[in-house]
Design a protein around this nucleic acid. Structure first.
Lengths: 213, 213
DNA sequence: GTCTATATTTCGATAGAC
DNA sequence: GTCTATCGAAATATAGAC
């Protein structure tokens, strides 16, 4: 009972990562200096180097340590036996939209795109820890539905891209147009999401897809 | 006839923009210094400042002056009366894949995502000069097909995102994983493109879509 | 663990000769 | 238009006291 307090009085590392993530999302990687981060966190720059070896190490920690929750929630949806196969797909799509559009980790995509060419380690961590795992869970859900006869025998790789592509592009577009006054008219999230879900479900339940051409 | 030579002996500005674009795509905006650019181009850094006022001005020129050709080709496809409505959509999708995956301008998306938050002018130029125009042409093609009775009465905004989202995300994913040895297995362009085209055409010609719920 | 102060490097941009 | 040389600013990272 000496060290297992479930709610630590102050999770320094977690606090720093959360604030740093927010700053990176807002101003980009190159646009966020260690001095900026120190100011936002409320400590001195040198103190930051006590917690993290370098700016790059701090950023990699933001990327890798922010993903745990998102994957678990998707897996829970896949394992939820109370849902029908179409309802499960709908729940998964709503969760994927939520992750990519509203959580700090999801919105990090823009920054990861920026950093990936110069720090391949980031591309590796992002792909292996986030993208590939989300893809695998959703593809598994589709295969489950096909095996049960709920869905047509469709190309799962193609469906994967139809499933995630519009979400990721929408997240990027909205981050890029954050300064536009008419952003919500250009990219109305609710309408796009609902249409997207509707079309994906239509494809999955389309009997014509059964012909293996 | 004194100044209208159709093939200028040496298009300095065009050469510089082409080489700079290639460098930006490979190393990102922050990762490409003016010294790097000067070395690639084969002149001194100071000479670069004779052609362009600043690094930012050079980059904006790369973005805006690279788009002209891509829009014209898409418009030509829309105006091609020899194509059936589905064949036109197919041709447009192949062209959009080609633009985003193989041309330097298309591959600039990664860099534009990086720069947009700090240089809103870039986001404006990119959206107005590239994205919005491509969206408008394709949406027009779909509306033409609906008007002629070739396509179902479908939500064109939703189709827009289903049309472009997977392409743009694929382009980003491939740029980000350029250093992966198994990139072509993770993101096999030909297979993804063909499945995507097939599914889009299936949705457009699906009679069930006619019910305006 | 946090602070003040500073070292070191890199980069964007300019001056001025040719 | 291109060059050599350099300025000035900003950022990463470190030294060492408390």
């Amino acid at each position: 009972m000496t060290k297992s307090d479930p709610t630590p009085v102050s999770d320094r590392r977690g606090d720093i990562l959360a604030l740093a993530t927010e700053a990176f999302v807002t101003h980009g990687y190159a646009g966020t200096s260690m001095a900026d981060l120190a100011r936002v966190i409320g400590i001195q720059k040198a103190s930051l180097y006590h917690h993290f070896q370098s700016k790059q190490a701090l950023f990699v920690a933001c990327v890798t340590e922010g993903y745990e929750g998102t994957v678990r929630r998707l897996e829970a949806i896949r394992a939820d036996a109370s849902l029908s196969d179409p309802a499960r797909i709908r729940a998964a799509m709503e969760e994927v939209y939520r992750i990519n559009l509203t959580t700090p980790v999801g919105r990090m995509v823009t920054v990861i795109v920026e950093v990936a060419p110069t720090i391949p380690e980031v591309a590796q961590a992002f792909h292996g820890g986030f993208i590939a795992r989300h893809y695998a869970i959703v593809t598994g859900m589709i295969e489950d539905g096909i095996a049960r006869g709920s869905f047509a025998a469709i190309d799962t790789l193609g469906m994967q891209h139809l499933f995630f592509g519009p979400v990721i592009t929408l997240a990027l577009s909205r981050e890029m147009t954050a300064c536009f006054p008419d952003r919500d008219e250009l990219y109305p999230v609710d309408r796009i999401r609902e249409t997207h879900i509707d079309l994906i479900l239509r494809l999955l339940t389309d009997r014509r897809a059964s012909d293996g051409s």
